[in-house]
Amino acid sequence: MSVLGWRALLVFALLAALPLVPGMSRYYLLLAFDALLFGAIAMSLDLLMGYTGLVSFGHAAFYGLGAYATAILMERGVQSVWACVGFAVVVVGLYALVVSYFATARRGIYFALLTLIFAEVVYTFFRYTQTFGGSDGIQGLPDATVLPGLVIDTPTRKYYLVLAYLLIAYAICRVVVASHFGRVLVAIRENEDRARFLGYNVPRYKMGACMISALLTGVGGAIYPMRSAFATPDLMLWTESGEFIISVMIGGLGTLVGPIIGGAFFTILRDKVSSIVDWYFIVIGGVLIVIVLFMPRGLLGLRRIFSRRAAA
């Protein structure tokens, strides 16, 4: 538990108590599910963006493939959470291996473009072939089971499922960041060539970072149909990747916690604004511009401003 620290444990304890809040409705629990899932995926992306300095425009493909892995199994009567997540790890792992092998051979914008191109190929495949439902995707999935008899059927249970995923993913990210491997990633971000002449096989390290990030994202994707009961190609659209990136930026690059907050903030903002107006993206865009202009370190950067004021 020392990897997490008492503050993180306190936050998780508070999050665990959320369903107990009086007046907590089904709607808010599912919104909380979406917020935490989005936050966890933004955090996984942060491992790549914030720590390794690689911007992936293709994380939606990892996410969507994970969702399809669950949906395909469930459609065939497999309802076990473990089987679905395991299958997602295999599918996303194989795909990520190919993408990261080719993408990490290139730097900067080429890495971003390659991840985007691969993701678009996957999107197009699922969108235009009828095997997996075409543009409708796979709908009407049953509830998942953790153990025989323990079915994830209520919003509260779904919420705890995503909370468990977030906790595990966060612990993994913390361990990775604190390890020697994590130091090398930061070294690569700061200067790739320096890391190379110190004896690090930089593309292999980048590939490792990609794989961890992709697998965590894929598992997040695998959990999504357990709440929504469907998987559609839209989950793989590049705008989804863009929203992950935006969430990382809102929260604060290279902080892990920031992107979780950013993802949750983005999800809730989108939900709230879209329930009021149709042209909600204009509002969200405005909010993002304000954040980027006035909080370049993201929401988590506010912490520093306040602590500096308190010190002064």
């Binding site: 020697h180 130091r183 930061v186 070294a187 700061e190 200067n191 320096r194 890391a195 110190l198």
Partner: peptide, 14 residues
């Protein structure tokens, strides 16, 4: 060319 964002110890261990 050291890694400015890392500590002295981290630079050495790298």
């Amino acid at each position: 060319r050291i890694f400015p964002g890392l500590t002295v110890r981290e630079n050495l261990e790298l």
